[in-house]
Amino acid sequence: EDYYQILGVPRNASQKEIKKAYYQLAKKYHPDTNKDDPKAKEKFSQLAEAYEVLSDEVKRKQYDA
């Protein structure tokens, strides 16, 4: 799945936009606030993985290549 789609940001998003999108979605899908939703944990880990790659310039360049 596309990391940009997961975070809901365009491919040319700035680091600030990526961070903002991640924090909004992380708050929304955090397992502690969605105890009754088994998919929230999965969504949250996808968000974390996408953010880890896109927030790191080197990893992001490799991902975009």
Score class of each variant (00 low, 15 high):
K43I: 14
A65S: 11
E52M: 11
S45G: 11
L25C: 05
S14P: 06
Q62T: 05
K27R: 09
F44W: 14
A21C: 05
F44M: 12
Y51A: 03
K20L: 15
E57K: 08
Q15Y: 12
I18C: 02
N34F: 06
Y63C: 03
P31E: 12
D2W: 05
Q5H: 14
R60P: 01
D32F: 03
I6G: 01
D32Y: 02
A26S: 11
D36M: 10
D64P: 03
Y22P: 00
E52H: 07
Y4N: 00
L25W: 05
K61I: 05
Y23K: 15
Y3G: 01
Y4V: 00
E1G: 13
Q5C: 14
Y3S: 01
K39R: 14
Y63M: 03
Y29K: 04
I6Q: 05
P10K: 13
E1V: 14
P31T: 07
I18Q: 00
K61N: 06
K27E: 15
Q62E: 15
L47G: 03
Y29N: 06
Q62S: 06
V58D: 14
A40G: 07
I6W: 07
Y29H: 08
P31Q: 10
E49Y: 06
A50D: 00
T33R: 12
P10A: 12
D36H: 13
H30W: 12
Q15A: 13
V53C: 06
G8M: 05
D56L: 02
N34W: 12
K27G: 12
N12M: 06
K61R: 10
Y29E: 04
K27C: 12
Q15L: 14
R11I: 06
A40V: 09
Q46L: 10
A48S: 13
A50I: 12
E52A: 14
Q5F: 11
K35R: 11
A21V: 05
Q15D: 10
E17Q: 11
A26Y: 15
A65T: 09
Y23F: 12
K59A: 06
Q62D: 14
G8H: 10
K59R: 13
D2S: 11
K41H: 14
E42A: 12
I6E: 02
R60E: 01
D56E: 02
E49H: 07
Y22T: 01
E52C: 08
E42R: 10
H30I: 08
D36R: 09
A50Y: 02
H30L: 10
S55Y: 06
G8S: 05
A40K: 06
K35N: 13
K39C: 10
E1D: 11
V58C: 10
Y22H: 03
D2T: 08
Q15T: 12
Y29T: 04
Q46I: 10
V58N: 14
E57L: 06
Q62F: 07
P31W: 05
A50K: 00
